[in-house]
Simulated scan of single mutants.
Amino acid sequence: MKHASIKSARLARLTKMLSDRREHSTLEIMERAKIAAVSACISELRCLGAEIACSKRHDGPNGEPRWYYRMTKGPRKNG
């Protein structure tokens, strides 16, 4: 997979947001980090060495599924 550099503004915003090591929903990431293709950006960070867990919960208003991401290890600085 081709991926952007860690110097990419969108990956930098996502890394900063996930650096608190807490879970964040796809919608929260879209709104706070201003990223549309969350799963693609997560994949790019993984290519740069980040370890990001993903979980699916049915906790939407009517039991709809929601995806949550939690970074346990950040990307390489020289990615």
Rank of each mutant, 00 (worst) to 15 (best):
H24F: 14
S25C: 02
S55Y: 11
S5M: 08
A36W: 09
M1R: 09
H24C: 09
E64L: 05
I42F: 08
A36F: 07
A36M: 07
A9T: 08
S8A: 04
R32S: 06
R22S: 15
I29E: 00
R22I: 13
L45E: 04
A12P: 09
A40K: 10
T72S: 11
C54T: 14
A12S: 09
S55R: 13
K73N: 06
I35F: 13
E23R: 15
R76F: 08
Y69W: 05
L48G: 08
P61L: 01
A4P: 12
K7D: 08
N78I: 14
T72I: 04
S43E: 08
G79R: 07
E64Y: 00
H58M: 10
S19I: 08
T26Q: 02
P61Y: 01
C41I: 13
Y68Q: 04
G63W: 05
S39H: 13
R13E: 07
K34I: 09
A12H: 11
E31I: 15
R32L: 04
L48A: 07
L14D: 03
R70E: 05
S39G: 15
K77F: 12
E44P: 02
K7F: 06
K34L: 03
T72K: 10
A40H: 11
H58K: 06
I6W: 06
A9Y: 14
H24Y: 13
R46F: 04
E28I: 01
S39P: 15
T72H: 10
P65R: 01
G74D: 00
A36P: 05
